[in-house]
Design a protein around this nucleic acid. Structure first.
Length: 891
RNA sequence: GGGCGAUUGGCUCAGUCGGUUAGAGCGCACGGUUCACAUCCGUGAGGUCACUGGUUCGAAUCCAGUAUCGCCCACCA
């Protein structure tokens, strides 16, 4: 029960309100959609990027959890049929990388354990880590449906993977073939182009003499062709030397042969336009098995491809005397030997781009091998059309161009990996190398081609690229390929939220696979957030020591403040800097909220009297402001302008509710002449407005708002609408604006500001009570001010107030607080005149400048060309300024 | 080599179809023991909206170009 709630005692908002509240949410079942969709309800389903199972929470996670939770809570409060399905990704290569390091400490290696024991060890590791990220997400307040928590290695996911692959195969979109792929010698697997990260480096460009073949086939010591290379060790796999067909220098050599050093292989000298004449010597060695360009060149000329590296990038048996050496040892030795032989023609530093393994940083080698590929062009075409034709919208929209460019230039996707941890490719081979693909867990009954029985078939040992299973996430998690109730109810999903850095890895693949497998776009909106950077705009990294640890921040200032800071700072597709200043600001805000609530709860009249009487100006005004804030917040959330939403409510809460309204309401609550009914009404308004504010803030600040809510609920169930839990409470509907209250309140606040200003300019202490003379501009202003004298007294700290008739300027000094609605001066400060003379002439000059500007504007073409309402607005503005000036100078 | 984005007060950022005197938070200056909050309150200073040209009655906003920074894509040894 709520009895443990003792109001809101601490002076500062506590950081650690999470655990108890989170448990209450869990117990309420609020995270899980009702058994049946509420009839007629809208649907909101978020697709989240399942974090790597090995990871621990970093600011990137904190951001995505914050934004997705924000959206989820908002739509849930709107009454939508809402689902946020959480899970983790098995991250095959990343997980193996981590586990390899762990078992290394235990004195084991992947090889020493063997596949079965390695996988066993991996599953044990998973048991330890799988829940870690989920627990951390909960600390951030993630209101995900943990009853549906999934893992990409679950049997449901495995089945979806097999089925998708089988269907792709049946549709002719899968093939197996030899190709030059990116190979990481440390991870000992193929990696995709996306996993190869280019880095600028300075290498060496060597020039090496290849002697021409003499008529007897031996190297001619006097004649040679000099080639340029940055990777001398690959010469062991050379099969030709190429020059440009129009290169005069080498024209007579084309068709002859050169002799490969060390191995003595005869290399035809060929002509091909791929050769850049200006580069190096204009002659290039051709190594089809170890270079993408050369591979193509080799194919054009019908040349063989000779692999010289093994899977750990050591020279293999093709390398003659160099066999067994590491690639770099071989490089050094070959260079040294060539130099000794006098065949090294030169060496110089060379700026170049080298591909590294995204995971381990090792230099990637192009390697010839047999792999499984997905034919992506037909898939990409549909995925492209979906975005182009608006069935899926990308936020921010300029990423649609990035997406389109990639889709238009897409290359086939090498999906096989020579790793162990992951989904094994469901392909079986018979002794005749016939291929059978099966979606069954038990595999095929027989070879599709020759009907050999299952016992004669062996399964492919390669596994899938992690992103293949991630690409099925939006629907594999809902039971696909079965037509389940969840799938029918929650698919396609609404918003897919993730960082722009995985738009190709993940988003593009989900679009392609989603369209192929289910026939529809897997989500209608792609919301891309940016990176969270450290102060100074640099990437956070452990080595730089500038990492903001979300869990430490939560311990220190609470999850709410972290969430608020991240939300205010976010802009779709753009990076943000998370600074201590922002975090402090957010902490201050949650604290402000906390204290405002403490005040409201503490101000509750003790006698339970029914509210009565007419609402005062501040009451009417705050309701109107709330209506405006509600409207804005709702619109911004609907348009996914999340930062704008947070900013709007921040402003309403701090400026309107705390700075003006609560200060004014103190007057109402303490007014001696007020009835108990009046006080009850005034308090009820404060409490109800607070309740609405809590509803509006709950998506971004869930814990503190919930904590305050339960105290408020205990104090006044009327205020909370009888809802014990804020998470399940309804999102507020905007009430009616009250323009006259807003105008009257503006009259009051402007006057208060003007008086405060005057006080500061005059150097009168803020605490000093001043007598004030007020001369309203007209009867309406007179009425407004007359009704607001008590507020004016309290807010401007003036007493007594002499409210005169309009135009009664007797004894008017030079120091005057002037607003469009009134002029006011402090009655008894003898120094005021002199001390404010300067300020007065300054504001007079300011007014005159404004008037002159507007007169010029209104005398030009503007009045004819601009829309009538714009012209009218300027005319009104001019009239206001003129009136203001008349008051200031006293007509 | 292509493409995308950014450039707004000392800092971090808003600025929604072009339309008041370009806003906010932090920082700064000055003043505050006003009974919710000094994690606070009040007042204020501070901006040629990177630059050049154009469109327009009117441009931070639209167009063209330039500069600087950042990111993405790309097979040149």
């Amino acid at each position: 029960m709520m009895s443990e709630q003792q109001g809101l005692s601490p002076r500062y908002a506590p950081a650690a309100v999470e655990p108890g509240i989170y448990d209450r949410w869990m117990a309420s079942g609020a995270f899980t959609p009702a058994a049946d969709a509420p009839p007629g309800a809208e649907r909101f389903v978020i697709t989240m990027p399942p974090p790597n199972v090995t990871g621990s929470l970093h600011t990137g996670h904190a951001l995505f959890v914050t934004l997705e939770d924000l959206m989820t809570r908002y739509h849930r409060m709107r009454g939508a049929d809402t689902l946020w399905l959480p899970g983790v990704d098995h991250a095959s290569i990343a997980a193996q990388f981590v586990l390899d390091k762990i078992i290394a400490e235990e004195g084991e290696t992947r090889v020493s354990l063997g596949r079965d024991r390695y996988l066993e060890r991996m599953w044990r590791f998973m048991d330890e880590t799988r829940d870690a990220i989920g627990l951390q997400m909960r600390r951030l307040g993630a209101s995900a449906d943990w009853t549906r928590n999934l893992f990409t290695m679950d049997p449901t996911s495995a089945r979806a993977v097999r089925t998708a692959f089988k269907r792709l195969h049946d549709a002719g979109l899968v093939y197996r073939g030899e190709a030059l792929v990116n190979w990481c010698p440390r991870c000992r697997t193929t990696i995709s182009d996306l996993e190869k990260v280019p880095r600028d480096e300075t290498g060496t460009l060597w020039q090496i003499r290849y002697h021409l073949a003499a008529p007897d086939g031996s190297p001619d010591p006097a004649r040679w062709i000099s080639i340029a290379t940055t990777r001398p060790e690959t010469l062991l796999g050379d099969v030709a030397v190429a020059v440009h067909p129009d290169d005069e220098r080498y024209r007579d050599l084309v068709g002859r042969e050169a002799i490969l050093p060390f191995l003595g292989r005869r290399l035809p000298i060929i002509a091909d336009e791929v050769v850049e004449r200006e580069f190096g010597t204009g002659a290039v060695k051709i190594t089809p098995a170890h270079d993408a360009d050369d591979y193509e060149t080799g194919r054009r000329h019908g040349l063989p491809a000779i692999s010289i590296l093994d899977e750990e990038a050591r020279i293999n048996g093709e390398g003659g005397e160099f066999a067994g050496l590491d690639r770099y040892e071989a490089r050094a030795l070959i260079v040294e030997r060539l130099r000794a032989m006098g065949d090294l023609d030169g060496e110089r530093p060379h700026a170049m781009v080298i591909g590294h393994c995204d995971r381990c940083g090792t230099v990637v080698e192009p390697r010839l091998s047999v792999q499984w590929f997905v034919r992506t062009a037909p898939l990409a075409e549909r995925a492209l059309a979906s975005v182009r034709e608006g069935r899926t919208k990308i936020v921010p929209d300029h990423f649609a161009k990035v997406y389109a460019h990639w889709m238009e230039n897409i290359r086939d996707w090498a999906v096989s990996r020579q790793l162990w941890w992951g989904h094994r490719i469901p392909a079986w081979y018979c002794s005749d190398e016939h291929i059978t693909i099966s979606e069954l867990e038990s595999g095929p009954d027989a070879c599709d081609t020759c009907r050999r029985p299952a016992t004669d078939l062996t399964q492919e040992t390669d596994i899938f690229d992690t992103w293949f299973s991630s690409g099925l996430w939006p629907f594999s998690t809902l039971g696909w390929p079965d037509d389940t109730a969840d799938f029918r109810r929650f698919y396609p999903t609404s918003v897919m939220e993730t960082g722009y850095d995985i738009i190709f890895f993940w988003v593009a693949r989900m679009m392609m696979l989603g369209l192929f497998c289910t026939g529809v776009e897997p989500f209608h909106t792609i919301y891309l957030h940016g990176l969270v950077r450290a102060d100074g705009g640099v990437k956070m990294s452990k080595t730089k020591g500038n990492v903001v640890d979300p869990l430490e921040i939560i311990d220190e200032i609470g999850a709410d403040a972290l969430r608020f800071a991240l939300t205010v700072g976010t802009s779709p597709g753009a990076d943000q800097r998370l600074t201590m200043g922002k975090l402090d600001g957010a902490r201050n805000f949650t604290n402000k909220l906390w204290n405002a609530a403490r005040f409201v709860l503490g101000a509750q009249p003790e006698l339970p009297v029914a509210p009565s009487g007419e609402p005062t100006l501040p009451e009417r005004w705050i309701r109107s402001r709330l209506a405006e804030a509600t409207e804005r917040a709702t619109r911004q959330l609907d348009e996914l302008e999340l930062s704008g939403y947070a900013g709007a409510i921040h402003e309403f809460a701090w400026s309107d509710y705390c700075d003006w309204y609560l200060e004014a309401v103190k007057v109402d609550l303490r007014r001696p002449a007020a009835t108990d009914g009046d006080r009850a009404r005034a308090w009820a308004t404060a409490a109800e407005t607070l309740a609405s504010l809590l509803r509006l803030l709950h998506p971004v600040i869930p814990f503190v708002t919930e904590e305050i809510w339960s105290a408020l609920h205990e104090a006044s169930p009327q205020a909370t609408g009888g809802e014990p839990l804020l998470i399940s409470a309804a999102w507020p509907l905007p009430g009616a604006r009250d323009r006259s209250a807003e105008a009257d309140m503006a009259t009051l606040t402007e006057l208060v500001r003007a008086v405060r200003n005057l006080r500061t300019e005059s150097g009168v202490a803020a605490a000093t009570w001043l007598p004030l003379t007020v001369v309203p501009a007209d009867d309406a202003a007179h009425a407004t001010i007359e009704g607001s004298v008590a507020y004016l007294e309290a807010l401007a700290r003036v007493r007594p107030i002499e409210l005169r008739d309009t135009g009664d300027d007797r004894g008017r000094p030079t120091g005057v607080a002037s607003t469009p609605a009134a002029a006011a001066w402090a009655g008894s400060d003898p120094t005021a005149d002199e001390r404010t003379a300067a300020a007065r002439s300054e504001s007079e000059a300011h007014l005159r400048r404004g008037i002159a500007r507007l007169r010029t504007l209104l005398s030009g073409e503007f009045t004819e060309r601009a829309p009538a309402e714009v012209v009218q607005r300027e005319r009104n503005r001019l009239a206001d300024l003129e009136a203001e000036l008349r008051h200031l100078v006293g007509d």
